[in-house]
């Protein structure tokens, strides 16, 4: 199960994603942003960091890196793509996911564990979770405040495309549990077809007990499992 991990100048979670894929039983491979082919990868991860220094806006310059044409083609062909943190910002800028990530409402860089609720367990990325399950996952960002216009937001909710929502220990998506001002406590969404996931929290930093949480590992196991099922089918 070959998984391409796109690496931009300024990516800094590429190694975390590499290890996550390995632990989940997949074969990760770094793909430098100047490349133009995904080299037969069966899934793509756009990792966290500060691609191109986050200059102009997070993701704004990365979306024009040469590899992004191949990533867009892969998305259109139904390939599975996960964007984490800066990767989510890149996918929004590239138009592969709707909306935008604004500066955190607090204006502060947020770096701590958060809780998020699994809204759907019927995606290729979340089959290893239970619907309603509360996960403890680290987050680390300055621009994680999810915004979309009212029509887009209504469509996301109506089509059940919000996959993760910030919540408290009891699973309530309360304003107090919202770390960055995101509309409707949105922590992660999928595209209409369900093959592209973007999320601000870092499942790649919650994959081994030594990291304080293993709640992120099932996401990568779900992804590898979906690839294995596709291969059998």
């Amino acid at each position: 199960m070959n998984v391409a991990i796109i690496t931009f100048p300024g990516s800094n979670c590429d190694q975390d994603c590499h290890r996550s894929v390995e632990l989940a039983g997949g074969s990760p491979r770094y793909v430098w942003h100047r490349e133009t082919s995904l080299g037969g990868a069966e899934a793509v991860i756009v990792p966290g960091g500060f691609a191109h220094g986050d200059y102009l806006r997070p993701g704004a310059i990365a979306r024009f890196s040469p590899i992004m044409d191949a990533v867009a083609d892969f998305a259109r062909a139904g390939g599975l793509i996960v964007g984490i943190c800066n990767g989510f910002q890149v996918l929004c800028e590239a138009g592969l996911l709707p909306g935008a990530l604004l500066r955190n409402e607090s204006l502060c860089f947020q770096s701590h564990h958060c809780r998020m609720r699994v809204e759907r367990s019927d995606t290729a990325f979340t089959a290893g979770y239970r619907e309603g399950q509360v996960l403890g996952i680290p987050l680390s960002h300055a621009d994680g405040n999810y915004f979309a216009d009212p029509d887009t937001l209504a469509a996301l909710e109506a089509e059940r495309r919000v996959v993760f929502r910030y919540c408290d220990a009891r699973g309530d998506a309360s304003p107090d549990a919202n770390p960055n001002g995101s509309l409707n406590n949105i922590a992660g969404i999928v595209n209409a077809r369900g093959n592209v996931l973007g999320m601000m929290p870092h499942p790649d930093r919650a994959i081994e007990a030594v990291l304080g949480s293993v709640d992120g590992l099932p996401l990568f196991e779900s992804l590898i499992g979906a690839l294995a099922r596709a291969e059998v089918a």
Partner: peptide
């Protein structure tokens, strides 16, 4: 194309 984000 680049300098502004049409969403925001």
């Amino acid at each position: 194309k680049l300098l502004a984000n049409p969403v925001t």
